[in-house]
Design a protein around this nucleic acid. Structure first.
Lengths: 239, 239
DNA sequence: CCTGAAAGTTGAACACGTTCAACTAGGAGT
DNA sequence: ACTCCTAGTTGAACGTGTTCAACTTTCAGG
């Protein structure tokens, strides 16, 4: 499985160009915002031609995919670290959200411009798109850990879809965050701090008999409309 | 309060140009989609210059504001008509959603491109923006009617915010709709049909004692993070 | 009727994202 | 060494949304 040294050198060179472009782009995004960063500026600062940037990244949007996956990775690591030892569900959910906000903070300034494009279902940046699947799966996996770390017993069917629902909750918080213009986004932090216990409470309440039908309905709903995504649902043409 | 005939004539002329541009734009949007409709094409077909289009509409996005308010008006009328005589909450909510989908259907094709821009908080098209307030208020008022039409008694504090929550539910359905590529958007219709009874059920369940704390929390949450919008919240700079 | 200001209108010009035909290495096969 | 061939790279050119200084029309006030 070894490869010729020459090929390795070539690949390294290519990789260097690629990451030079990406680094420059992210830096400029953070400095000036997404809209005010032109492809020409990125290319110039990275020391390549405009066309070259397009050789590596299909569009300006695609540059963000790199940023996104990097952020998710950071989020997972930080959350794992902070959650350690904590077994209360509300606390763990709260930590996961707080970590996301912490990791995302430097980019809040251009988050709006970023999400504008992400909202187009056709865009590969949409959180529901095929291209975003890796990042999405990584994040739902994190919420699986969030749940697993509590001693909580939830009925197995629900346990299956709960991580997706927690992820959805995070998406809602993220949505609020995008719109949040309060200093340091403290309002979003407050929202997270207040909804985390509610979510946890709902999970424990879900065992009550009165709520059973509702829970069952909700479960089949999520299963039909969120999980099926992989084959027939929105984002793809149905047969 | 009468005005000179000349001023009236001038206003009429101006209004004619304005609506000629808007009509043309909406027609072309429906025909070719938002992205493929250029400002030059709109201006040409409307028989005006490009600059003139910008005299009446600050940007291409602003053309959609007109479309949006028109749609809300249709939605309100149709829903009122169909709801008449029906007193069951689930049914009424279901009707309201079905009507929205019916009214919106012709525009589904370019809805994605449209919502891309609406997702930018800075954009006046955002459903939470100041510019969208009239349409938003009209729609929440509709949901106030939806509730009023049932004999249901809900505790007064909740009754206050329930319309906003129903509107939020509609927004969620709309979000799904935007992403829905199933033929005739039947999946969204199904989603609406299935969630409407659940929403109604939650409303009636909200009186149970076990749920009281949760309901109270939810209520203050909505009050703090959704209603306050008017002064301090996201979309505006805090002090 | 005249006049000046306001409202309306024009199209060339700008900056941007994106494309593409052409060019340049650099290494594999002989 | 020589030839290809592929991956990498270039920048001029295209189509777009948007701006703006200049022009034209309209009409209230004299």
């Amino acid at each position: 499985m070894t490869e010729p040294a020459a090929a390795g050198r070539a690949r390294a060179r290519s990789e260097r160009t690629r990451s030079a472009i990406l680094e420059t782009a992210l830096r400029l995004f953070a400095e000036r915002g997404y809209d005010k960063t032109t492809m020409r500026a990125i290319a110039a600062e990275a020391g390549v031609s405009v066309g070259n940037a397009y050789y590596y990244f299909t569009s300006k949007d695609h540059l963000i995919q790199g940023f996104y996956s990097r952020m998710v990775a950071e989020h997972v690591v930080l959350t794992r670290e902070r959650m350690a030892g904590q077994t209360d569900l509300a606390a763990r959910v709260g930590i996961a959200l707080a970590c996301w906000l912490e990791v995302a903070e430097p980019y809040h300034r251009f988050a709006g411009q970023f999400f504008r494009n992400a909202a187009d279902p056709a865009s590969p940046l949409s959180p529901f798109s095929h291209e975003s699947a890796p990042a999405r799966l990584e994040d739902t996996a994190l919420y699986r850990e969030v749940l697993a770390g509590t001693g909580l017993k939830v009925s197995p069917e629900i346990a299956d879809i709960l991580p997706e629902m927690l992820w959805l909750h995070q998406m809602a918080v993220v949505l609020y965050w995008v719109y949040d213009r309060s200093p340091g986004q403290h309002r979003t932090r407050e929202l997270a701090a207040r909804t985390a216990p509610m979510v946890a409470r709902i999970v424990t309440l879900s065992r009550y008999k009165v709520l059973r039908p509702l829970v069952r309905q909700a479960e089949s709903l999520v299963r039909d409309f969120l999980i099926v995504d992989e084959e027939e649902a929105p984002g793809r043409d149905a047969v």
